[in-house]
Amino acid sequence: MEVRTIKVFTTVDNINLHTQVVDMSMTYGQQFGPTYLDGADVTKIKPHNSHEGKTFYVLPNDDTLRVEAFEYYHTTDPSFLGRYMSALNHTKKWKYPQVNGLTSIKWADNNCYLATALLTLQQIELKFNPPALQDAYYRARAGEAANFCALILAYCNKTVGELGDVRETMSYLFQHANLDSCKRVLNVVCKTCGQQQTTLKGVEAVMYMGTLSYEQFKKGVQIPCTCGKQATKYLVQQESPFVMMSAPPAQYELKHGTFTCASEYTGNYQCGHYKHITSKETLYCIDGALLTKSSEYKGPITDVFYKENSYTTTIK
């Protein structure tokens, strides 16, 4: 009895394709271990004539594949690729409408935090270190965002349907971005203890939790000093293409032309909904596939993004 075979390709990165001759009487799992086709788990399936010449994702289970996976995804987590594939199996079914010149995501599976993050990423200057993220990001900007969303979920250790947080998501993504040249110098002034300067680099240099107003941050924000008295913390120097200011959701007025974009969060910790506000020729609110415009805006804002380049204080 002759062994019926077909020729397929296996890959971990969709760049390096490895030619395989597979036995049609055995499952993919018996031949390769966990195997995925377009995100779908085909591990328990036997090869079919229609699979001839198709590319299958496999887990990096030998040295060659491990090197290829690390170079593309910059992670050695053995569960990463499987999590990416199972997320992709959902995100490829989502709709990605162009809204006001940006790629958004039609609401499904509690994905409003991903839509808000995706919209924000198209408006701030950011370059990702893992080629996987950078490639998928370019495709997302062009309207094909399924891979990018699935990668975000995998890097953030999230599953489809789980509630997510924009600030946490951005923080994970910033860790995989090139923020080497970003720098922030802060000064804390206390009447009792004097003053202390701190220099922050990388992710810490672009994120701040405690106030939404970048102007206020430049002037000074009140913080408790270690001595128990009130101290003032203010920005001395900022070198970065953008800054992200966050605070627990509270009524906040966004003035046209003073910011790049913002995240609105309605609801409580267990259950809520994100919308995205962007400042173009007027203010726009993007909620999944829905767009509304207004000249002014007041609502429960939790993150505001500002364009920056270089700032030095005039406070002496």
Results as ranks from 00 to 15, higher is better:
residue 126 L to R: 03
residue 307 K to N: 07
residue 7 K to W: 12
residue 90 H to K: 13
residue 72 Y to R: 10
residue 144 E to C: 10
residue 300 P to S: 12
residue 110 N to A: 05
residue 291 L to R: 04
residue 33 G to R: 07
residue 249 P to M: 04
residue 56 F to H: 06
residue 312 T to P: 12
residue 243 V to D: 03
residue 92 K to V: 07
residue 183 K to F: 10
residue 82 G to C: 14
residue 277 I to T: 00
residue 158 K to D: 00
residue 32 F to P: 00
residue 246 S to I: 00
residue 239 E to V: 11
residue 189 V to F: 07
residue 192 T to K: 07
residue 221 V to Y: 02
residue 54 K to W: 12
residue 166 V to K: 03
residue 4 R to F: 08
residue 273 H to M: 04
residue 186 L to V: 14
residue 269 Y to P: 15
residue 57 Y to T: 12
residue 290 L to S: 15
residue 64 T to N: 08
residue 140 A to T: 09
residue 16 N to G: 08
residue 105 I to P: 00
residue 61 N to L: 14
residue 82 G to W: 10
residue 161 G to V: 03
residue 199 T to M: 11
residue 148 F to G: 04
residue 253 E to V: 13
residue 288 G to W: 00
residue 221 V to R: 03
residue 190 C to F: 01
residue 234 Y to C: 02
residue 101 G to F: 00
residue 153 L to E: 00
residue 137 Y to G: 04
residue 192 T to Q: 11
residue 56 F to S: 05
residue 183 K to G: 07
residue 306 Y to M: 03
residue 127 K to A: 10
residue 109 D to Y: 01
residue 199 T to W: 01
residue 52 E to F: 12
residue 134 Q to E: 10
residue 253 E to N: 08
residue 315 I to H: 15
residue 302 T to I: 10
residue 33 G to P: 09
residue 176 H to W: 15
residue 276 H to C: 08
residue 71 E to F: 06
residue 185 V to M: 04
residue 39 G to C: 14
residue 222 Q to P: 14
residue 52 E to Q: 13
residue 20 Q to P: 07
residue 298 K to C: 13
residue 133 L to T: 02
residue 102 L to D: 02
residue 136 A to M: 07
residue 141 R to Y: 06
residue 121 L to R: 04
residue 117 A to I: 12
residue 168 E to L: 09
residue 246 S to H: 04
residue 87 A to H: 04
residue 41 D to V: 11
residue 117 A to S: 07
residue 109 D to K: 01
residue 157 N to G: 08
residue 139 R to Q: 11
residue 71 E to P: 04
residue 277 I to W: 15
residue 233 K to E: 11
residue 289 A to I: 09
residue 88 L to A: 00
residue 251 Q to N: 14
residue 47 P to K: 01
residue 288 G to N: 08
residue 100 N to E: 14
residue 138 Y to S: 14
residue 280 K to P: 00
residue 49 N to K: 11
residue 9 F to M: 14
residue 313 T to Y: 15
residue 106 K to H: 12
residue 27 T to Y: 09
residue 80 F to M: 05
residue 259 F to S: 04
residue 183 K to I: 11
residue 178 N to T: 06
